[in-house]
Amino acid sequence: MDMFLQLLVTGIMVGGLYGLVALGLVIVYKSSRVLNLAHGGFLMILSYVAWQFAEPWGLPMWLSIVLVMGIAVVLGYGVERIILRPLTGQPILATIIVTLAMFEALEGIQTLGWAGLTQGYHNFIPSTAIALGPVFIEQHYLWSFVVAIVLFLAFLAFFRYSRHGLAMQIVSEDHQVARSLGIDVRTVFAQTWVIALIIAAIAGILYGALHVIDVENANIGLIKALPVVLLGGLESLPGALVGGIIVGIAEIVGAGYIDPLVGGGSADIIPLTLMLLILLIKPYGLFGWVRIERI
């Protein structure tokens, strides 16, 4: 029972972070109908940039984080302007392949800049565990969960109450309506990319602090975040958090019991198997919009 509780709590903590990664995907998808398969690549590269600032160049961590966010803003705007905007109106296959090509390029850039080496943030979050009844929580997990939840609430408030956020909501409903209300749809696309990459930067740093900074981190944008957005629904912001926590629990609890039987690695497969099942049973997720097609 203690083992189950321990796994459950760890699962919830990890799930919060997955939800944050998935939020970046959902924001872009909602406004521009582009599923950014390169999201994990950006997450990975930005976490390396933060490491570069913090460790070899010796800047304080808070300054590195601010600088990385600045880079994320420039990168997000640039990617939207140079690569995605010319593809407006192309078939969806084009955006899938373009984001995959970006994913490949980002892995190449990582090898170019950091030679594929694994790194880690030191002295960022203390690694002692906190006892909570029978359950031990590592401070890494706790901090990443708290930050993820706070950011989540902040972005939800942003989308519900701020002018820009409401503009993004309208764009996700209908581009023509948004235009007739005087909203510049292109600007909104750029803004969503910028926000998504800022989220990717934060999630990347948290994930790097939780485990290590590695090229393989790019895969969490695919094998973790995609099951999350699918479970929560591609169009739903709260769905990303709910889906994240469900996937996190399923992964950690499942891996905790199955790994001893098969010799490891099942943590990567459980979310994907879950995703296949969702695709077969309820493809639009818990909170997604069921699309009705007409000829």
């Binding site: 998808y29 599923l35 398969l37 969806i92 296959l93 899938i96 695919l222 094998i223 995609l226 699918l230 591609l234 990567d268 497969i269 994907l272 198997t273 995703m275 296949l276 695709l279 493809p283």
Partner: peptide, 15 residues
């Protein structure tokens, strides 16, 4: 179809 199918076949790759 579209994105959803891309996800399913990508899951096949890893599984």
């Amino acid at each position: 179809k579209e994105f959803y199918l891309a996800m399913a076949t990508m899951a096949a790759q890893f599984i």
